[in-house]
């Protein structure tokens, strides 16, 4: 389980969040752009230092302003899949995948290389360079790379945002399979409701740097008082295929 109570100020923007994400399944972090989603994920990963507060994962303290604890990113065992993949261009796909794995002590490794390659369907790409991959392939490799560090939690910051609809379909089934095959909790940042519907088991709503709701996606999406949030930000409550199509053609 991830607990996070932090405050942070960045120019005009103030973040004041108290949230919990369950220790299993996919937790969606949903909110309009500028709600502070990426900041929160970066704080969990250790790439951004909150002004104050405390972050723990499964009881292990990652950050505590009062006790002056701030584990560096490389000691947090948090896997991070970035929006734009961020594969190392000078390394082969295989070397990208094993980069973090080789830095993980063997005794705490529980994710198997062959299993991940099989799960993500990237076996035929191993000797290629990232520059030669499609967007969807890149993201699958990026997921594999993060997974192979045997992390305590996997962060995904809009991993599909830079992909078109066809490429998205190259990735979504694999993320779904992830939830069934690997017992690593996932924090999934998105502002696409249909992605959340098809992937998430839990959902946290953010607005203007504050948590405004937490629960299962079905529960939250049917709450009338939150309807304003969907409506106001131009995201239709109805996220069936027709609505998705409409958004895409826009």
């Amino acid at each position: 389980m991830l607990t996070l109570q932090i405050t942070h100020r960045q120019g005009q923007f103030a973040l004041d969040v108290d949230m919990e994400a369950p220790g299993t399944g996919v937790t969606a972090l949903y909110g309009p752009s500028g709600a502070g989603k990426t900041s929160i994920v970066n704080m969990v990963a250790g790439l951004l230092r909150p002004d104050a507060g405390r972050i723990t994962i499964n009881g292990l303290c990652l950050f505590d302003a009062n006790q002056k604890i701030n584990l560096p990113p490389e000691k947090r065992r948090i896997g991070y899949v970035f929006q734009e993949g961020r594969l190392f261009p000078h390394l082969s796909v295989r070397a990208n995948l094993t980069y973090g794995m080789r830095l993980t002590p063997a005794r705490i490794r529980f994710v198997d290389f062959d299993a991940v390659v099989e799960l993500l369907g990237i076996g035929h790409l191993l000797s290629r360079r990232p520059a030669g991959l499609s967007g969807g392939e890149k993201q699958r490799v990026a997921i594999g790379r993060a997974l192979l560090t045997s992390p305590a939690m996997l962060l995904m910051d809009e991993p599909l945002a830079s992909l078109d609809a066809v490429r998205k379909d190259e990735v979504i089934p694999f993320i779904k399979r992830l939830g069934n095959h690997v017992s690593i909790p996932i924090l999934y940042v998105s502002h696409e409701l249909n992605e959340i519907r098809s992937l998430a088991t839990h959902m946290i709503l953010l607005e203007e740097g504050r948590q405004v709701g937490s629960g299962t996606p079905e529960e939250l999406l049917s709450r009338p008082e939150l309807g304003a949030l969907w409506g106001k930000k131009g995201t239709p409550l109805d996220c069936g295929p027709a609505a998705a199509q409409m958004r895409m053609s826009r």
Partner: peptide, 15 residues
């Protein structure tokens, strides 16, 4: 050099 790549390497366990 994209600092994002260096950040990614940090999250993968590299000092």
């Amino acid at each position: 050099v994209d600092p994002g790549l260096e950040a990614a390497a940090r999250t993968l366990g590299a000092g």
